[in-house]
Nucleic acid binder design. Sequence first.
DNA 1: CAATAATTTATAACATGTTATAATCCAAAC
DNA 2: GTTTGGATTATAACATGTTATAAATTATTG
Lengths: 228, 228
Amino acid sequence: MPTREEAKAARREAIINAALRLMYARGDSGFSMRALAEAAGVSIATPYNLFGSKQAIMLAVLDTGMTLYEERLSRLEADELDIFFEAVSLAKDLYAEAPKFHQAVLFSAYGDGGRDYRAVFGDPRFLFWKMLVERAREAGFLDADIDPNAMALALSQQFFICILEWAYGEIELEELESRVHYTFALLLNGAATAAGSARLKPHLKVLQKHLTSLWPVSAPRTSAAASR
Amino acid sequence: MPTREEAKAARREAIINAALRLMYARGDSGFSMRALAEAAGVSIATPYNLFGSKQAIMLAVLDTGMTLYEERLSRLEADELDIFFEAVSLAKDLYAEAPKFHQAVLFSAYGDGGRDYRAVFGDPRFLFWKMLVERAREAGFLDADIDPNAMALALSQQFFICILEWAYGEIELEELESRVHYTFALLLNGAATAAGSARLKPHLKVLQKHLTSLWPVSAPRTSAAASR
DNA sequence: CAATAATTTATAACATGTTATAATCCAAAC
DNA sequence: GTTTGGATTATAACATGTTATAAATTATTG
């Protein structure tokens, strides 16, 4: 005799699990709410009662993935400068474990234009970047008068757009990592002290070389260029 | 007795115009294909014959706006460094003339995730930024070994994500401009020569001050932060 | 144990983008 | 001028996300 709240929680879980199962199976989020309800063993009305919309369900799925990422992130140890690049690579590694699945989650969670998306994805990450910026500044790698909010915003936005490009199938995982690394190095170097620049400048060259090596004629794949 | 092609072109135009009219009137793209067909005086099947999908119609509408922007852009005259910022402000000015309309166009055109979007929006702009980067490099403001493709990619992506944020109603036009200006300065300074840096560093401080002044408690509005 | 009230369920319905089909129209070809 | 064929039209249909409604279920309350 489960409590009412327990039963509700169980149904919630069943729905999320069914969504996960369907997405892993098909590799995309193209399941219908009717199919989801059937897979979860509930009525079509229940997902709406418990989550409100398909969007919200996708966000709940995304949220479970974020928890995993944040946990690994907290165990990351690196230099105040290297940590920026390590955090990016960590995300890439996580995505690489189940690329199709993550693409599907990210793609569909962003769906409506990402207003709620940000609550799960953008905002917590922004705070993380801000913390890293503050540390790098204290370590003397970044200019003292740089604003951590402004800098972190630029970083998280750049990360975000590259993830979006990958989720939309425009670029490969390797290029995702490379693009973010390169742009991070550029942004950080733009606000670096002499000490920071001394480390970032050489790094930047390596990163640029790697990034451009991914492009066929040394031009990035901005896709659909021929369709006009 | 109009030619068959003429009649087709006229219908095309009628549909685009109807779409424009509906979007200007309501300020969003929430019109149905049935409403569009009626407003254009054609059958519901015709827009599908001529464009293929609602997406494609939105892209055609976006395209007309892009033409205007590119025309003004080509008349822009400024220093090899200032031009970056002028081009951003020009877009802002254009959007300011009919903000609701442009938001609606951008929002809905990006709809599916922007695969085709890029053909109209991303790619032509990328080439423009690349040209500016090459000029700035030749003028001695940017490091000689910087790759114009890599740099232009970072710039256009940053511009793009900020426009998206505005289209999604996350930020105001003024913040759109300020964010892009700031990040452009950071990115450019990250690859600047001594001469370039001499001009960008002071500019960066001003831009950072302006950007942070737009935030209430000196924290950017990443929205929905309270909804978890 | 009986009454209550919260949830789920089954079901229908609606709006929407999109596709299919057959009838109709009309410029183009002869 | 008649025929032909490409395009549009009217219409129905489908899948989908979502909402509404009444009936059924079941933990909770007394």
